[in-house]
Lab assay of single mutants.
Amino acid sequence: ITIHVNGVTYHFDNPEEAEKFAQKMAKTYQLKMEIHNGEFHME
Rank of each mutant, 00 (worst) to 15 (best):
I35D: 04
Y29W: 05
E34N: 07
H41Y: 15
M42I: 07
K32N: 12
M25C: 11
A26W: 13
I35E: 06
K20S: 08
K20Q: 11
I3T: 01
G7W: 10
N37G: 09
N14S: 09
F21C: 14
E43Q: 12
Q30W: 05
H11M: 07
Q23G: 02
E17H: 06
Y29V: 04
P15L: 13
G38C: 14
T28F: 14
A26Q: 10
V5P: 00
F40V: 12
A18M: 04
T28K: 14
M33L: 14
T9A: 14
A18L: 03
G38D: 04
A26T: 04
K24M: 13
I3K: 01
V8E: 11
K24V: 12
T2G: 02
Y10P: 00
N37Q: 05
M25Y: 03
M42Y: 08
I35G: 05
V8F: 12
G7D: 05
F12Q: 00
V5A: 06
M25A: 02
Y29M: 03
K32M: 13
K32F: 13
Q30C: 15
K20M: 08
K20C: 13
K27W: 13
L31T: 04
P15F: 13
H11Q: 07
E34L: 08
D13P: 10
N37H: 08
Q30A: 08
K20N: 08
H41Q: 04
E17I: 08
N6M: 15
H41T: 06
F12V: 00
F40D: 02
Q23C: 15
D13H: 11
K20I: 10
D13I: 12
T2D: 07
N14H: 07
I1N: 02
T9S: 11
G7M: 08
H36P: 02
I35S: 04
I1E: 01
V8Y: 11
T28C: 15
E43K: 13
K20L: 10
H4K: 05
V5I: 10
M25S: 01
F12E: 00
P15N: 08
Q23P: 00
H4V: 06
H11K: 09
I1Y: 09
M42A: 05
N6K: 12
V8R: 11
M25D: 02
K20A: 11
I3S: 01
Y10E: 00
A22D: 00
H11E: 06
L31Y: 11
K27S: 12
Y29E: 15
E16Y: 12
H4G: 03
V5R: 01
N14R: 08
M42L: 12
H36K: 12
A18I: 01
K32E: 13
I3H: 01
N14V: 08
K20P: 01
T2N: 11
H4F: 07
P15C: 15
N6Q: 12
E17P: 01
A18G: 08
T9R: 13
E16S: 10
G38T: 03
G38S: 03
E34A: 05
M42S: 03
D13Q: 09
E43H: 13
T28Y: 15
Q30I: 03
H36G: 03
E43T: 15
F40N: 04
D13G: 09
E19K: 10
F21K: 00
Y29R: 00
E39H: 08
F21Y: 02
N14E: 07
D13K: 10
Y10K: 01
Y10H: 07
V8M: 10
T9Q: 12
A18D: 00
F21D: 00
Q30Y: 10
A22S: 02
N14Q: 07
F12H: 00
T9M: 10
F40Q: 04
E17L: 10
K20V: 08
Q23I: 11
K24N: 10
N14D: 11
K27E: 15
P15E: 08
N6G: 09
H11F: 10
E16I: 10
Y10M: 03
E16N: 08
M25R: 00
T28M: 12
T2H: 14
Q23W: 09
V8D: 10
I1D: 01
G7K: 07
E17R: 08
A22V: 13
E43V: 15
K32H: 14
G7T: 05
G38K: 03
E17A: 10
H36M: 07
A22K: 04
H4W: 11
H41L: 06
K27R: 05
G38M: 03
H41E: 03
H11N: 06
T2P: 02
N6D: 10
M25H: 03
F40A: 04
E39R: 02
A22P: 00
H36D: 05
Q30F: 08
I3Q: 00
E43M: 15
A22W: 04
